[in-house]
Design a protein around this nucleic acid. Structure first.
Lengths: 211, 211
DNA sequence: AGCATTACTTACACGCAAGTAAGTGTCAAC
DNA sequence: GTTGACACTTACTTGCGTGTAAGTAATGCT
């Protein structure tokens, strides 16, 4: 081959960054090409259409995530240490760039406008996270059904990224997440759970209109 | 006037729904017009450009939110009851349609691609929420700096909407949120806070590439 | 009766972005 | 030294979506 600067690989990397900032809707072949100093058609050469490219991005990010989670697994630490390492994974996202969200989270926001294949990929990405967290939470003996709690942790972290990026303050992520360990207690007792379920609510729920 | 079916108002309502499902990027004059059985130009007649329309949507939603929060304020209940009513506000969103997110949350995801005026509006929307929650949390004597905790609550709720919509299961929202009261303890003590801050992390943080 | 206002419509201009077709140049193997 | 794969480019088509200009029809006001 004449010149292969690893364009295909650089393309996925760039595409991921763009998606983290601007989402799938904000991913344009034109700007990718411009950034890499190639033509738009060259992008099509490697990834015939946007879905191909985006799926590749997710696939690679899933793979990377799996590796990171595996590294946490092998460190064989107490549950709350593992969770803190997990939190740090999210923090690394905003450390890489304060305009970024988790690729999965960004796509989750756009999920209704996504082509079906991508939608499925996004769900799988979240499955990966939720099942891993659930597995870890199962590590201490204190619970048997960690599924809801795992979903809560993942949701809270995605929300934390969303909010901290909105304000453009990476450190606000810490402020949000620091207290999150409370809902993943290992040594500390869980406070007595209240009745829960929605109490008297001042909301009339209309199907449509009337806001 | 000849025929005024309240088109302007129906337009904002519809636009909000679309934005909740598909975001600002998925909001198109063409489909709005088609849905209401008018022409695209008629939409421009009321809202000359998309930014006008979207800002109007946010403004009305802010106003609605303010009213809801005021209603919770006057009920003069204990903090955790107020918080539960607040949670129910979010639940009402997915009750209205399981493809919807909070308008503010959706726009927060798109924030980097949004025209600046809109971006500012979105921040104000979140300010409204965070300051209200902080004020309520201040209601019990147990804390003095509820800002971080307030942001955490808001972030967690937005994340909960994101995740529950992703899976298309409205009831998963409950599963996620039910345990959220733990981080808003009023009578129950907060478990002893651990050192926190990121512990040994198996992550090399590169600025770019290499994923 | 005449005029302005409101609530629209038809028609058009324009830019952007995805995708495709058909090259061109270079290296590597046979 | 031809053949073929690879890494692209130029050029073009097509469709979508915003925005605007210039009507038109009905109503209300003076």
């Amino acid at each position: 081959m004449k010149n292969d600067n690893g364009t295909a690989a650089r393309l996925v990397g760039l595409a991921r960054e763009v998606m983290q900032v601007s989402g799938y809707a904000g991913l344009h072949y034109g700007s990718l090409a411009k950034t890499l100093g190639i033509t738009r058609a060259a992008v099509h050469h490697y990834y015939p259409n946007k879905v191909d490219l985006a799926r590749r991005v997710i696939a690679e990010y899933c793979e990377w995530t799996r590796q990171q989670l595996a590294e946490i697994d092998v460190m064989d630490a107490p549950v709350d240490d593992k969770m803190r390492s997990y939190f740090a994974l999210y923090r690394s996202i905003i450390e890489e760039g304060d305009e970024r969200l988790c690729p999965g989270g960004m796509l989750a926001a756009e999920v209704m406008t996504l082509p079906p294949e991508l939608r499925a990929d996004v769900r799988k990405f979240f499955d990966l996270h939720v099942t891993w967290v659930a597995k870890v939470l199962l590590g201490d003996g204190s619970r048997t059904e960690p599924a809801g709690e795992a979903a809560r942790v993942v949701a809270a972290l995605q929300g934390a990224l969303l909010v901290s990026r909105l304000y453009g303050r990476p450190d606000s992520f810490d402020a949000i997440v620091d207290g999150l360990m409370i809902i993943v207690p290992t040594t500390a007792p869980i406070p007595t759970k209240r009745p829960a379920r929605k109490a008297s609510v001042p909301t009339k729920t209309r199907k449509n209109e009337g806001r």
